[in-house]
Amino acid sequence: MAGHADAAHSNAGKYIQIAVVLFALTALEVALYEVCYGGLKTMAPGLGASLEPWFVEVLLLLSAFKFWFVAMFYMHLKFDMKLLSWLFLFSLIIAVIVIGALIILFGYNRGLWWPGGKW
């Protein structure tokens, strides 16, 4: 049973490439933070100011990419049974529903996006 995925396995080169990508994306995340809020803010104030409104969105996007790379290649979802991907995806969907709903509901309660929504 164990060998079923061997043929399709990506080789070491692929793994290295992904490691590099992961590292680069992480560096990008930290750099983004540094430019917007950290030490680099003074060095490139214009860049920081223009990126800042999108800080959270960009960070989430970069993290999603990293997540996807690890799940697809290191966890072999790309080469493994579809069922496993569905299993993971379904759990993630429920997880995102829970996180999203709670953030929306609490934001509403605190009047963040519905004036007078405080009751």
Partner: peptide
């Protein structure tokens, strides 16, 4: 949790 007052949308 309807009685907690989540607001009409929720």
């Amino acid at each position: 949790m309807f009685s907690t007052g989540m607001g009409p949308l929720a």
